[in-house]
């Protein structure tokens, strides 16, 4: 087994995916996507990427203008997988303890009691994360990376599965603290929702007429199943050729003259993880270069720094990554 993190469920000789065959995983994923799709109209690609991030044990950064459904996406996801969900509205005066929790003195027991912060949930929606101060931002980011919270020397494990969906307004808007690149690197992928098309927007108006669509959602799976699915995703086979392709792509971003900073080695790890999850969603037990290509822009674009030339020519990072993909040979 060359892939990382072999799991108990990956011992089957035929697929290596244990009780969940790739088809079963695909079915479950399709159910989740269908459930979310009743709320988020016309955004199957965004839903799919959100699921990839979920299965790849990564966190999702959604960058878009207000009101396009970022919160709805997070809520519908949490609801569909029957998980707890907390929402933190980041504001400039938000304190780190508001995120992680705080120890308060209980007079009756004469001891400090830990009151968990908003981060203690399966799905955490960090709304407009770039409006908070860097110190608060980093409190969340530490929790994301370590899957735990340390308050007053005491370490508290976060519930599993744990996923942060952070939204941020485009950095040009007022009153924002752009995420440093080191912190952006911790998000598995960044996606845009964009405005829905005309038909989807009308459908959205219809559904909001009736009632709260989120309330109508019924869970299609549970946290335990999801955790097993994540294990299965980790067991998806990535051949040496695919790994080589990932490394080639990442290395190519480092040589691209339009990029001041290329993708980090962690970006490569994330890209492969995401490709595995993507393959699982397609019902395959092995990753293909197609999976890598499909995820290159969402996984890599937010991690790289554009060179002044790219800024001047207003070339977005996504375009640069697309060009890199078009240039690197598929092994």
């Amino acid at each position: 087994m060359t892939q990382q993190g072999g799991t108990p469920g990956s011992e089957g000789p035929d697929t290596g995916l244990g009780e969940f065959g790739p088809e079963a995983a695909r079915t479950i994923a399709a159910e989740i996507a269908g459930s979310m799709g009743t709320v988020i109209s016309g955004k199957p690609q965004a839903i799919r990427l959100a699921l990839v991030a979920l299965l790849a044990e990564g966190h999702l950064l959604i960058e878009d203008v207000p009101g396009v459904g970022k919160t709805m996406l997070a809520k519908s996801l949490a609801r569909s997988i029957d998980c707890s969900m907390h929402r933190i509205q980041f504001t400039p005066d938000l304190l780190p303890s508001d995120v992680t929790g705080v120890s308060v003195f209980d007079r009756q027991t004469s001891s400090f009691e830990f009151r968990p912060g908003a981060v203690f949930a399966h799905i955490v929606l960090g709304d407009e994360i770039n409006r908070a101060s860097p110190k608060t931002q980093s409190a969340l980011l530490e929790a994301m990376e370590e899957q735990q919270v340390t308050v007053d020397g005491q370490t508290y494990q976060l519930p599993q599965p744990f996923m942060v969906i952070a939204t941020q307004n485009p950095v040009e808007m007022e009153g924002t603290y752009p995420l440093p690149e080191a912190q952006r690197d911790r998000f598995l992928m960044q996606i845009q929702l964009g405005y829905p098309d005309r038909v989807a927007e009308i459908a959205m108006l219809d559904s909001h007429d009736i009632a709260d669509p989120i309330a109508a959602l019924r869970p299609v799976t549970d946290a335990a199943t999801l955790q097993r699915l994540r294990d299965v995703a980790r067991g998806v086979f990535a051949s040496p050729a695919v790994k080589q392709y990932v490394v080639d792509l990442v290395a190519a971003t480092r040589r691209d003259p339009l990029l001041r900073l290329g993708a980090s080695p962690r970006a490569g790890v994330h890209l492969l993880q995401a490709a595995r999850a993507h393959a699982l969603l397609a019902g395959r037990d092995h990753a293909l270069p197609d999976d890598v290509q499909a995820l290159a822009v969402p996984v890599l674009a937010h991690r790289v720094l554009l060179s002044p030339e790219a800024h001047l020519s207003r070339t977005p990072a996504a375009t640069v990554i697309t060009e890199v993909v078009a240039r690197v040979s598929v092994p």
Partner: peptide, 11 residues
Amino acid sequence: LERVRYGRPET
């Protein structure tokens, strides 16, 4: 080809 090149070697 995909199976041979990218698939699990044991299959």
